[in-house]
Design a protein around this nucleic acid. Structure first.
Lengths: 149, 149
DNA sequence: CAGAAGTCATTAGCGTGCTAATGAGACCGT
DNA sequence: ACGGTCTCATTAGCACGCTAATGACTTCTG
């Protein structure tokens, strides 16, 4: 049953690499995707706000580091908030906005390609199973002694 | 459908973190697992041989770096091959051998816990779906233009 | 209004994994 | 036996993500 860990790790590894490669063709690396998704929706958020809104759990330091690389790549700019000197607001450049559609399409295409050999029913089962696993692991990380309650 | 990428990423992220935490209790970090699995089976292999035998694709430089940390942690020793000066053979210490059973149990428990809310049928479907995805992504990484053959 | 406490982004440091470049050693042909 | 080539491990350098520590700024409190 341990092979289940191997299976999901390998699948995610392949998807990760394929996604990075697909997005790189549009000047975006995979680690930048979570930030872009949030800023495409609402521009000018702070690192902390982005961390809170991201679809996947991500820490603020990771956002700061990634934002630095994105700034160097010309994808966003940093501006201090005039009302609160602690805050830094991240604003997308035109280049980052222009990348939205092709990147979203590329990721959609990748998901479709990866699941191309699955039936609709299998896709549904897969989604159900993954959701259950996430819920189980999110609910209570306890596992060693004391599985009750 | 893009949510599928998010689902599998999050599931793997949670499993990855939980697995690292579980193995850390036995003095082993998650990146060392692939190497240990191979050396538990056959001790004294070279980094290249380990890369070839590992259950998941892994590069030789990653094995070398991880082996350096494992050496510092007292999990293995490096010895030059007497017959071929290019080769370095990695030998597990008693400590690494003693960790085999508890770590394998911890990973099995984790897999069971993660899939505890799934029916046997769902587990079967999940395995099938993941296998198909892996095959699809391994077969031909092509995707943009030219999906044929 | 000052000092304490809270809230931010950021930096430091680690682990993991990759590709590309490097260097040591073996092997092969002449 | 010697030079080129091949085969190794290793190093360099990058991306990504985490926790813990730091520092700047705001806010609350006396």
């Amino acid at each position: 049953m341990d092979e289940f860990l191997t299976l999901i790790t390998q699948a995610q590894k392949l998807l990760h690499a394929a996604s990075d490669e697909a997005m790189s063709r549009h000047g975006v690396r995979i680690g930048q995707n979570l930030i872009l998704e949030v800023l495409w929706e609402t521009d000018g958020l702070t690192p902390g706000e982005i961390a809170a809104r991201a679809r996947l759990p991500i820490t603020t330091p990771t956002i700061v580091n990634t934002a630095t690389r994105m700034e160097a790549a010309g994808l966003l700019t940093r501006r201090r908030d005039p009302n609160d000197g602690r805050l830094v607001r991240l604003h997308l450049t035109d280049r980052a906005r222009a990348a939205q559609r092709p990147i979203q399409e590329a990721r959609r295409d990748l998901a479709e390609h990866a699941t191309a050999t699955l039936t609709d029913e299998e896709r549904h089962h897969l989604r159900t199973a993954l959701t259950k696993i996430i819920q189980q692991l999110t609910a209570e990380p306890a596992e060693s002694d004391g599985e009750s309650e």
